[in-house]
Design a protein around this nucleic acid. Structure first.
Length: 207
DNA sequence: CGCTAATGTTATCGTCGTAT
DNA sequence: ATACGACGATAACATTAGCG
């Protein structure tokens, strides 16, 4: 079976055509993908790629390796198509794969197997609609504060506000009870609020 | 407008680390 | 050994948003 649209730097070709709304459900597209319709899978990828890269970046803190992690995640999706249950939502399943790939990549970064450039220029700096509501300085300060959270509290926050997962989907993605997700989100928000208040002189940033 | 699901907040309890 | 505080998990309740 050919996977030519996944080869080379396809990821960039997909990105420039981003933003297409899906006109059929993801379950339907996954069903078609399982039947061998590559354009169905590509349509799903195109729909999710930006949020996937942003999520991977916020885990790895490195754009180049975020891209690698997402590309690996897409390959993993392709390899695992057969194991995907048709009645399950695609996004939590896919997000779980992205998180795992990004974590693995981050481990390699932390161990020094990969170069770590915190000052790199972001080649994918596309603010989400929410980000447009804030000035760049505010967004950077917010991401800085998020980055300083521990993984336990940061991940649920990223999955909710970057990937747009519901609490139930986050629970499924992370394999923890929904009540724990709720608690971690609350604690994370409290810490962010505290930090942004400290840094912003009491400015009331909504999270 | 009322119902329901999703989300946010709070109180309480358990666990773990640390100081004495 | 134990008292204490910090922190996280859980459950219950409150609030909000979406929908018919």
């Amino acid at each position: 079976m050919s996977i030519n649209f996944l080869q080379g730097r396809w990821i960039y070709k997909v990105r420039v055509r981003k933003g297409n709304a899906l006109d059929v459900t993801e379950q339907e597209l996954m069903k078609r993908a399982k039947e061998g319709q590559q354009d169905a899978l590509e349509q799903i990828f195109r729909y999710h790629i930006d949020s996937a890269i942003r999520l991977a970046y916020l885990i790895t803190r490195n754009w180049a390796t975020a891209e690698d992690a997402v590309q690996e995640a897409f390959l993993q999706v392709f390899r695992s198509l057969a194991s995907f249950q048709d009645d399950r939502p695609f996004k939590p399943w896919f997000t779980k794969i992205v998180v795992n790939k990004a974590k693995r990549t981050k481990d390699r970064l932390d161990r020094g197997y990969l170069p770590y450039d915190m000052e790199e220029v972001n080649p994918h700096r596309i603010y989400s609609p929410e980000e447009h509501a804030l000035d760049k300085e505010g967004v950077d300060a917010l991401f800085q504060a998020i980055n300083e959270l521990d993984d336990i509290h940061r991940l649920p926050l990223l999955l909710k506000y970057v990937s747009g997962l519901t609490e139930a989907e986050i629970a499924e993605t992370l394999g923890i009870p929904a009540s724990r997700v709720k608690s971690r989100l609350y604690v994370a928000r409290q810490r962010l609020k505290k930090r942004t208040e400290l840094e912003g002189g009491g400015r009331d940033d909504d999270v």
